[in-house]
């Protein structure tokens, strides 16, 4: 037996195996389509919009950015809840420094809420 004993041999073999693993099914599918099923593209089949309606107008339009503000306000409440729960659970065994840093965090979030309130975000319609 005269197997080449280059140190990269196994790596190359594995690499080839991995590439073949990916390409073989694709090649089979391609071959199958060539031999059996004819391609039938069409204007409607290739249309971009796929909800049954014909698309109209332009996709490059400006959207209002105000939804971004709602996302930020949501974050205020959401992040607050996520951090406050473990804080409340471990409250009795926490040091004064930990409580203080938590309070700073709360003040930061409350500031965001006040800002949103001043922007008129919390009034509907």
């Amino acid at each position: 037996m005269n197997i080449p004993q280059h140190p990269w041999w196994t790596v190359i073999a594995l690499l080839l195996g991995a590439v073949a693993f990916g390409i073989t099914p694709l090649a089979l599918a391609w071959l199958w389509a060539k031999v059996f099923s004819p391609q039938k593209p069409g204007a409607e089949k290739n249309a971009t919009y796929e909800c049954g309606l014909e698309s109209k107008g332009d996709a490059w339009i400006q959207f209002g950015a105000s939804y971004y503000l709602y996302a930020i306000v949501f974050l205020v409440f959401d992040v607050e809840a996520v951090f406050l729960l473990p804080f409340a659970v471990a409250f009795t065994s926490l040091s004064a420094g930990a409580c203080l840093s938590m309070l700073v965090f709360l003040v930061l979030l409350a500031e965001g809420l006040v800002w949103a309130c001043q922007k008129g975000m919390l009034t509907w319609a």
Partner: peptide
């Protein structure tokens, strides 16, 4: 028309 269009957009 929407049903037919959806059917048309399905691949064979």
């Amino acid at each position: 028309p929407q049903v037919v269009r959806l059917y048309n957009q399905m691949p064979e």
